[in-house]
Each structure stands twice: as structure tokens, then as C-alpha cells.
Simulated assay, not measured.
Amino acid sequence: MRSYELLYIVKPTLDEEAREAILNSIKEILTSSNGEVGEVNVWGSRKLAYPIQKFNDGVYTLVNFKAEVDVPKELDRRIKINEDIIRHIIVAQDQK
């Protein structure tokens, strides 16, 4: 298994319940694929460098996880379907 980081930004108009539901769905995708969810950091609302979908702010969340190499591709596909996530990036961590 490799280590990855997922950083995603959700719309600032979402309430706490909706943001928690998105995080839980991401955790479900990872655990159902035999992945391990590590540290989760909710950075909160921050100003975007440029407007995205007419939003100037977004709520940032960073998720560290371990998974097989095919899992990030599936996670990426499922995140793209979710209209409440306005940006995301999945990065493989260096192996030491």
C-alpha cells in the first residue's frame, strides 16, 4: 500500500452536516477498497486565489490515507461526480 494525500474544497454554502456527509462518503470509499484512513484535517473556510463556480471562498479538508495503487483513480472518479466538491487533488507521498 502507498500513502496518499487528498485535499478537497467544498462550496462555502454547505452546512456542517453536508460537509460531514461528504467526508464520511470519502472514508467509505477508502475503507471499502481495503484502504486505511489516516489523519483528517479540516482547515475551514479560506479565500480562494481566484473565483471557482462564482465562489470566492471554500472549505478545505485534507485527508491522509493508505491504499492500493488503483484506489486513487476510483476515488477521483467518484469525487468528480459530486457537485458540492469544487476542487480536489490526490497526491502520492514519497516512499522513504
Rank of each mutant, 00 (worst) to 15 (best):
M1C: 07
M1I: 12
M1A: 08
R2C: 04
R2P: 01
S3C: 07
Y4H: 06
E5C: 08
K11M: 09
T13C: 06
T13A: 05
L14F: 04
E17W: 01
E17Y: 02
A18M: 06
R19S: 09
N24I: 00
S25L: 02
K27Q: 15
K27H: 08
K27V: 09
I29Y: 09
L30F: 08
S32H: 12
S32A: 09
G35Q: 10
G35K: 12
E36G: 00
E36I: 13
V42G: 05
V42I: 13
S45D: 07
R46H: 13
K47C: 01
Y50I: 05
I52K: 10
Q53M: 04
K54M: 06
N56K: 13
N56V: 11
D57R: 15
D57F: 14
D57N: 15
G58E: 02
V59G: 05
Y60C: 07
L62K: 06
L62R: 08
K66M: 13
K66I: 01
A67D: 01
V69Q: 10
V69W: 01
D70P: 01
E74M: 08
E74V: 14
L75F: 01
D76F: 06
R78A: 07
I81V: 14
E83N: 13
D84T: 07
R87Q: 12
I90S: 00
A92K: 15
Q93V: 10
Q93K: 15
D94K: 11
Q95R: 10
K96W: 02
